[in-house]
Simulated assay, not measured.
Amino acid sequence: MLKATQLAVKDIVNLSDGAKLGPVKDLHIDPATGRVVALVLQAPRRYFGLVRSGKDMVIPWELVKKFGLDTVLVELEPMDRSYYEVK
Rank of each mutant, 00 (worst) to 15 (best):
M1G: 09
M1Q: 14
L2M: 06
L2A: 02
K3F: 01
T5I: 07
T5V: 04
Q6L: 06
Q6W: 05
Q6Y: 05
L7A: 00
L7Y: 00
A8C: 02
V9E: 02
V9I: 02
K10G: 01
D11G: 05
D11C: 04
I12N: 00
I12H: 00
V13A: 03
V13I: 15
L15R: 11
S16I: 11
S16K: 15
S16L: 14
D17F: 12
D17Y: 11
D17I: 08
A19S: 10
A19G: 03
L21V: 13
G22K: 13
P23M: 09
V24L: 03
V24S: 00
K25D: 11
D26Q: 13
L27G: 02
L27T: 02
H28P: 00
I29R: 02
I29C: 05
D30V: 01
D30Y: 03
D30H: 05
D30C: 05
P31C: 07
P31D: 13
A32C: 00
T33N: 03
R35V: 04
V36N: 01
V36C: 01
V37I: 13
V37E: 13
V37F: 05
A38F: 06
V40H: 09
V40W: 09
L41D: 11
L41E: 11
L41M: 12
Q42V: 10
Q42I: 07
P44V: 15
P44G: 13
R46H: 02
R46W: 00
Y47M: 03
F48C: 03
G49S: 09
G49L: 06
V51L: 11
R52M: 13
R52P: 14
R52G: 13
S53E: 07
S53L: 04
G54Q: 09
K55Y: 08
V58M: 05
I59L: 14
I59M: 07
W61D: 10
W61V: 14
E62Q: 12
E62V: 11
E62G: 10
L63C: 04
L63M: 14
V64S: 08
K65E: 15
K65R: 15
K66S: 14
K66N: 15
F67V: 15
F67N: 08
F67R: 09
G68S: 15
D70G: 08
V72H: 02
V72Q: 02
L73E: 13
L73R: 13
V74K: 05
V74H: 04
V74W: 06
E75D: 12
E75I: 01
E75T: 02
E75W: 03
L76P: 04
L76T: 06
E77F: 08
E77K: 10
E77C: 03
E77S: 14
P78Q: 13
P78C: 12
P78M: 12
M79I: 14
D80W: 09
R81P: 07
R81K: 15
S82Y: 08
S82V: 08
S82K: 06
Y83P: 03
Y84L: 15
E85P: 02
E85Y: 14
V86Q: 11
V86D: 09
K87S: 07
